[in-house]
């Protein structure tokens, strides 16, 4: 006897049967709690996204947490300098699994207009595994919303995340070998 046959006849149209981890992923993908950590210019656009006109809460993502222990998404919004790189790694490590990273703006992707500066890290994927890249300087709030919806798709398909992180780990190993 299949599981759905056990449901009483009268309730059959009101019951959905899914796997537990799929249900969990579905819930997670629709209620991401981002860490409210802004580095530079993009942080202002991140704040605008959360406020009245763009209203990120339509998608259930408005619960910005100031503490990394309560957050599951790190939006790196702004230029990462070498001085700030250690704290950002630490913030990432303090976040509980499963966790995701969005690189918002060209500074976070490749260093942006400051790439040839002596103090700027050329892209946060040198430091952290990034799931979604949002180009722009700064990206408009619509772009951030689009990026978060892309992330939703990724959370629903964890095999894609795993594949990309494996590639990232490989790239990191290669880079370290080159530096050594």
């Amino acid at each position: 006897m299949e599981l759905k046959d056990r449901v009483p006849e009268s309730l059959r149209n009101n019951v959905l049967i899914v796997k537990v981890d799929e249900l969990f992923r579905w819930a997670h993908a629709n209620s991401i709690w981002p860490l409210s950590s802004g580095l530079a210019c993009c942080a202002i656009e991140m704040m605008s996204t959360a406020t009245a006109r763009f209203d990120l809460s339509r998608f259930g993502y408005e619960v910005f947490r100031p503490c990394p222990r309560q957050a599951d998404l790190l939006i790196v919004a702004g230029t990462l300098t070498y001085k700030m790189a250690d704290p950002i790694v630490r913030l990432y490590e303090e976040m509980p699994e499963p966790k995701y990273v969005i690189a918002m703006g060209s500074c976070a992707i490749v260093g942006g207009p400051f790439a040839d500066s002596y103090s700027v890290v050329e892209g946060i994927d040198e430091v952290l595994p990034v799931d979604v890249y949002i180009p722009g300087c700064p990206p408009r709030p619509e772009a951030l919303i689009d990026g978060m919806l892309k992330l939703r798709e990724k959370i629903m398909h964890p095999e894609r995340v795993a594949e990309e992180r494996a590639k990232w780990a490989e790239r990191k190993k290669e880079r370290e070998a080159k530096q050594a």
Binding site: Y82, A85, D86, V89, Y92, E93, E97, V121, E126, V127, L128, P129, A162, R165, A166, W168, A169, K172, E176, Q179
Partner: peptide, 15 residues
């Protein structure tokens, strides 16, 4: 070289 995450191993394990 940018700083290394001390728990890099875990990220790889997860991958």
């Amino acid at each position: 070289a940018p700083p290394k995450a001390t728990r890099v191993g875990e990220i790889e394990k997860e991958a």
